[in-house]
Computed example of a mutant assay.
Amino acid sequence: MIDWDRINELRNEIGAEDFAEVVEMFLEEADEVAVTIAAGIEPDAVEAALHFLKGSALNLGFQELAQLCQTGEKAAAKGDAATIDLGKVISVYEESKTSFTQGKETYAA
């Protein structure tokens, strides 16, 4: 679910203090997008929302979320937004966030 090597790479690239700020910013912005999706996002906004989540997920090593968002983003681009299980996207985001929060001190160097 989490690519801890990516987490460590990012932390080493930008330093621990900046890493904490990046994580905080990502989680705040991703939480906002997740709330928007959960509240019933318009079909024409799905692609952009999933694109945002995918990019943020890739930066923070949320592999499963990134893959799910990529699949959904492609479907939305084809006009198939109604076929995307947005509930699963939110669920995987929440699971990823929990896994990251619980494991960041253990796995990240």
Rank of each mutant, 00 (worst) to 15 (best):
38 A>M: 02
6 R>H: 01
21 E>P: 03
65 L>T: 01
12 N>C: 06
26 F>V: 15
7 I>M: 13
48 A>Y: 05
45 A>E: 11
79 G>M: 12
47 E>M: 10
21 E>W: 06
30 A>G: 05
31 D>V: 07
56 S>E: 05
75 A>Y: 02
12 N>S: 14
23 V>G: 07
52 F>A: 06
54 K>P: 01
62 F>I: 15
54 K>E: 02
11 R>Q: 13
72 G>E: 01
57 A>N: 07
59 N>E: 14
13 E>H: 07
31 D>C: 05
18 D>Y: 05
67 Q>T: 10
62 F>E: 04
48 A>R: 15
20 A>N: 06
10 L>T: 08
40 G>I: 15
35 V>F: 03
31 D>P: 02
6 R>G: 01
82 A>H: 12
61 G>H: 00
40 G>A: 11
67 Q>H: 10
42 E>V: 12
78 K>Y: 03
52 F>M: 11
66 A>K: 03
18 D>C: 03
26 F>N: 12
34 A>E: 03
21 E>S: 12
24 E>C: 10
56 S>C: 12
33 V>M: 06
27 L>N: 11
10 L>R: 06
47 E>P: 04
81 A>T: 08
6 R>A: 14
33 V>Y: 02
25 M>S: 07
48 A>D: 15
36 T>K: 05
17 E>D: 13
27 L>Q: 14
54 K>N: 02
84 I>T: 06
67 Q>L: 07
81 A>Y: 01
65 L>M: 14
17 E>G: 05
57 A>E: 03
75 A>H: 06
12 N>H: 13
39 A>R: 09
68 L>G: 00
40 G>L: 09
26 F>Q: 08
